[in-house]
Structure formats: structure tokens, C-alpha cells
Amino acid sequence: MANSSSLTLNIFKQCRIRAVPLWQCPQFLFLVMGVINIASMILAYVFGRDLLSVEFVIVIVVSIAIVLLFLSYIITRNFEKLMELNQMKTEFISIISHQLRTPLSATRWAVSTMLAGGQTEEDKLSYLALLKENNDRMVRLLNDLLLVARIEQGRVDFKPQKFLMQDVAAQVVNNFKNYAKANNVNIVVEGGDENCLVMADPEYIKLVIQNLVDNSVRYIVKKGQVTVKTFLKRGNVVCAVKDTGVGIPLSDQNQIFQKFFRSKNVMRYQTEGTGLGLFIAKAIIEFSGGKMYFKSKENQGSIFYFTLPIAKK
């Protein structure tokens, strides 16, 4: 009995969390439907008891209850998923509009300064560079969104070729050197003596490593270390990106590869980020025949791994 009353309370709570009125809330409607069904069966038995045995009625009532429970579970689960997705989309729109607002404000201000006139040639050039940088940023954001749309429709245009993973890793690390240094982060590449030959689209794999390294540098508070390592393991080439950053709270760990998801502790440190990077990275690796996984501890850091099959020579 205690169990069933806590179940009822839980239903009310669920409906409140999802901000749905009771009469539109599937959890509650199923409960009402179940009660009505079972009550009507018992009433039918009361009036028709001369014709039916007790055992027969119990079997019917119990089996109908089980079927109802099963159906309501499936439907409410889907309903919850839809509500979650809806919530994530709302958050996503606010993230995207915020992300667009900053470069838009910057271009607006820069243009009005230029229109007011009176700058030296040098000033004008630096303003043009600023306009270009902000324009590039908006283009990158929209490209990420388009890539996500292509991934979802399975229309990514991969051009696989053989290459050494350590070369791409070293290239990315090299590109990040200055950015990392500016953020008090020491970035190093390890391994690479093994022959880590893979067959994939190097441009996309580069994007994956970039996304991982970018996250690592971004979520290191004050100072820290990022290590990118490539090695062979059980017929696969593995690339590991390790950092001494803020880590991912345990409660968020099963959601981080979801589109638009951003960990709560991350929002406190940085808001630049669309919640698309890891989703894109994982999808690219899976399309290329590999796997992506991670280990993380809050306030200690994370290691992201991805594997790709070794290419035949």
C-alpha cells in the first residue's frame, strides 16, 4: 500500500515537473484508465458471479493490469523523451542566439565606428580584420549546424584515404600551441612511434581531434596539461586526449554525447560552446567504423578515447 501511494505521488510529481496539466498527463490518464478498467471488471464479476469463478476473474484482472502497465510504460517513456528533446531545443535556441549575438554586436559596433570616420589606415585594417574574424565565427557556427543536419540524414560525404593517425594528432596539437599557451595550458603529443595507419577521411578525423582538444583546453581552470596520445591496441588504432580540467559530473556522464547537451559545471566556466562538438565527433568516428568513449572525474579531469580499425598495408 505504501508503495502504491508513493507511486501515485510520483505521478503527480512527474506531471508537475513536465509542466503538463493533469488531464493531459499520460501517467495520470493511464492510472485513471487502469482504475476504471479494473473497477468495471470487478463490478461485472459482482453482478455476474454465478457465471464466473473467482480464479478466472483474478487471472483476467491481473493480466489486464499487466498489459496496461506495459503499454503505459512505453507511451509515457516516449512522452518523456519528447518533452526532454523539446526542453533541449529551447535551450539550444537560446545558446545559438546568444552565440550569434556576440559577433553581431561586435560587427555592428565596428561598422558604426568605421562609418563615423577619422581612423588611420592601420586602424581601418584592424577593424576589417575584426569584422572578418566575427564573420568567420558565425560561419563556423552555422557549418556545425549544417554538419549535424547532414549527420542526422546520413548524408556526410566522407573521402577515405590511408594516413598515419599520429601525423594528424601532431598537426592538431601544433595548431593549438598558441591558443593553449594563452590559456595557461601545456599541450603535448605522446606515442607515435608505432605505425598507426588508418583508413578514414583525414579532414574529418582532424575535426574530431580538434573538438576534443578544444574542449580540453577550454575546460581547464587556471592552468593545466593536455596530452594527446596515439597507440595500437587489439587491432585498433587508439587516440586518447587527456586533460586536467573540470571533469564531467557523474550525473551528466550518460548525456554528454547527446546533441545540444552541455554539462552544468561547464556552463559556470564558459558559455561559448554549442553543445554540438562531442555529438559531431562521436558520429564521425562511428561512421568511420570506430568507437568513442571516455573516463572522467569531476575536478580531476577527463580522458576521451576514440578507436579506428588498423588499415591493411
Binding site: T102, P103, S105, A106, W109, A110, T113, D123, S126, Y127, L130, E133, N134
Partner: peptide
């Protein structure tokens, strides 16, 4: 922290 905003604002 946005360099572009920082620059335009301080120039102005």
C-alpha cells in the same frame, strides 16, 4: 573577454 567588443568599445 570578447576581444572584438573590448576593442571597439575601448576605441570609442
Amino acid at each position: 573577454d570578447e576581444r572584438s567588443l573590448q576593442k571597439t568599445l575601448s576605441d570609442g
